[in-house]
Structure formats: structure tokens, C-alpha cells
């Protein structure tokens, strides 16, 4: 109470600033400038990095989408083609096939990851022995090197000697799936991998949210006679809507951009059965040298993910139980 109130405005702050040191006329003006410069120095590495490796490539990618460019012919070979790449894409069966595959892949693996992740989080949100260790174990797939994950699953799902098919044979399934070596089963195999990787991620986020929920609501509900299912549907689930939106959006972005594992394991095959959109974009650019076309496909993918993300945010509005 006894302390002097802080100056309320910038002008007042300037008035209250210490007087310049004697013998150095004009320094305060300089000091304000140099303080700003110091800030620029601090953020310069990040700024340069972002400019060089994010902003310029993103702008370039957008511009390239409206051109026909093969890289090899250099900047002199850039030919502006307007919307030609986009119109070609919309009539390209290969693009729509990849679009459909990405939709199925994301549409199946993300909800399953969220569902199992939520279940796991609820199971772990009790005094389970070794809870911290279990949490780490479930989260591990999300942070392990993709190459290691790919090689492990390749071995597990090997048609003749993989552990999964050995187990299936031992329970009487004589003709188990060929997994990555079958056009019908390769995408489901990737879905299994995506769910395996996504469950731990979703569970950890859900667990953090569950531990933040106010216990008094549950106590009041219990006194009012609400059973576990009722408590879940009226308290837990509404409170978790923002978390669910976050998990959904981040998983959709991550799964729809799956590229490394597809290239490592199947290169989009057998045939074109796993050529999801990122693989299509890669092939168009790096294999067919059609960088304008690839950029246009990338831009369309970005727009789709953006629309999906905005839809999720809009959907969650009014459905969440916020603890004000």
C-alpha cells in the first residue's frame, strides 16, 4: 500500500525515466534505440531461421503452385500457368485416389487413437502401481525414431515369419493377411501403426486434462445419485471437449501428413494402395519433376486440413464445460 503506484501510461513512464547521465547529452534517445537493437540481436537467429527455412519456402511453394517448373531448367524455366495445375488436379484420378486413401487412413486411425487414448487415460487416472512408468511406456511410440518403428513393424508384420501372423496361425487362421505385401492390407497395417503411435500421445494429453478436473463436481454428482456413466457423460466428457478438439486437430495434422513411414516401408505400394497425399506430392515433385503440380497438391491438402481444423473448433463451441 505504501509503494508508489506504477506510471499508468507510456507517456508517464517516459516522464518518470531516470535523467540522462551528466556529460552525455542525447544518450536517452540513443538508449531507447539500442535497447530495441539488443532485442533484435536476441531474436535475430530465430528470425533469420524462420525467414529462410519457413517463410520464404512457404511463400515460394504458394507461388510455384501457379507455375510449371521442373527445377532442372532453373529459374529461367519457370512458366506461369495460372490455375492450370489446380484444374488438372481436380480431374486427376491419381490425386483423387490419394485423397481418398488419406481420408480413410486419417478418418479411421485418428478417432480410434482418440478413443483408445481416452480409455487408457481414464484407466491410468487412478492410483495404479507404476503409473508414471506406464505413462512413459505408452508415450514412447510417439517419440521413437520413425526408421526404428518402420523396421520393427516390418518384421512384426512379415507375411511368412512375422510374429503377428505366427500368432494368427497358432489360433487357427491358416491364411493370415500379407499386410504390407498386400494391396488390401497395407493401408490397414499403417492404420494399426498410426493408432499404436497415437494412443500414447492422446492418453498423456487426456491424463493431464483429467487430473485438472475439479473433484467437487464429482462429489456433488455422487451425492445427487449420479452413477459412473452419468458422471462421465455430464462432467468428464464436456470438460474434455477442448482437449479432445486439440488431440483431434493435432493428430489429424500429423496423420494426414504421414510420409516417412510410407516411403520407408511401401513407397506408396503395393501398386498404389498406400500412396497417401504426401507420397503423391513427393512423387509428383521428386520423381516426375513437376514441382508446380506438387505444390498445388500441397496447397490443396493444406486447405483441406485447415477447413477440417476450423470445423473442429467451431464444433466444440458451446459444447465444452469450462471451469470458470
Amino acid at each position: 500500500m505504501a509503494a508508489a503506484p506504477a506510471p499508468a501510461t507510456a507517456a508517464a513512464r517516459r516522464r518518470d525515466a531516470p535523467a540522462p547521465r551528466a556529460g552525455r547529452p542525447g544518450r536517452p534517445r540513443r538508449a531507447r534505440h539500442t535497447d530495441g537493437t539488443a532485442g533484435w540481436w536476441f531474436i535475430a537467429p530465430n528470425l533469420v531461421g524462420m525467414l529462410l527455412f519457413t517463410l520464404i519456402p512457404v511463400v515460394a511453394a504458394v507461388l510455384i503452385a501457379f507455375t510449371d517448373w521442373d527445377v532442372v531448367s532453373g529459374l529461367g524455366g519457370v512458366r506461369f500457368t495460372g490455375l492450370a495445375n489446380f484444374t488438372e488436379l481436380l480431374s486427376d484420378d491419381r490425386f483423387w485416389h490419394s485423397f481418398k486413401l488419406t481420408g480413410i487412413y486419417t478418418g479411421v486411425s485418428v478417432p480410434l487413437s482418440v478413443l483408445f487414448g481416452l480409455g487408457l487415460a481414464i484407466a491410468l487416472n487412478r492410483p495404479v502401481p507404476g503409473r508414471a512408468a506406464l505413462r512413459t511406456i505408452f508415450f514412447l511410440p510417439y517419440i521413437v525414431n520413425q526408421v526404428a518403428i518402420g523396421m520393427t513393424w516390418l518384421l512384426l508384420l512379415n507375411p511368412s515369419s512375422g510374429m503377428v501372423n505366427e500368432v494368427l496361425r497358432s489360433v487357427g487362421i491358416d491364411d493370415p493377411p500379407a499386410w504390407f505385401a498386400s494391396s488390401d492390407w497395407a493401408l490397414p497395417a499403417f492404420m494399426i501403426m498410426a493408432v499404436w503411435g497415437g494412443v500414447g500421445y492422446a492418453a498423456v494429453i487426456y491424463l493431464a486434462a483429467l487430473q485438472d478436473l475439479p473433484t467437487d463436481l464429482y462429489e456433488a454428482a455422487a451425492i445427487d445419485g449420479a452413477g459412473p456413466w452419468r458422471r462421465f457423460t455430464t462432467i468428464t466428457w464436456p470438460a474434455l471437449v477442448p482437449t479432445t478438439t486439440f488431440v483431434f486437430v493435432t493428430l489429424v495434422i500429423s496423420v494426414s501428413q504421414s510420409f516417412g513411414l510410407v516411403v520407408l516401408i511401401t513407397q506408396g505400394g503395393p501398386g498404389d494402395s498406400t500412396r497417401v497425399l504426401p507420397a503423391f506430392i513427393y512423387q509428383s515433385g521428386f520423381e516426375y519433376y513437376r514441382f508446380g503440380y506438387a505444390s498445388a497438391a500441397g496447397l490443396l491438402t493444406f486447405v483441406c486440413v485447415l477447413v477440417l481444423t476450423l470445423s473442429f473448433w467451431r464444433f466444440q463451441k458451446g459444447r465444452a464445460l469450462y471451469d470458470d
Binding site: S182, S183, P270, G271
Partner: peptide, 19 residues
């Protein structure tokens, strides 16, 4: 060539897998 080769490899794989 890239497209022709890709078409050859992709479709051949499906044929050899019996699909």
C-alpha cells in the same frame, strides 16, 4: 520415363501378387 516406369512397377507388383 518416370511415369512409365512407375506405371510398370506398380501394376506389375499387383499382377505378381495375384491381385
Amino acid at each position: 520415363y518416370a511415369g512409365v516406369y512407375k506405371a510398370f512397377m506398380e501394376s506389375r507388383a499387383k499382377m505378381l501378387l495375384g491381385e
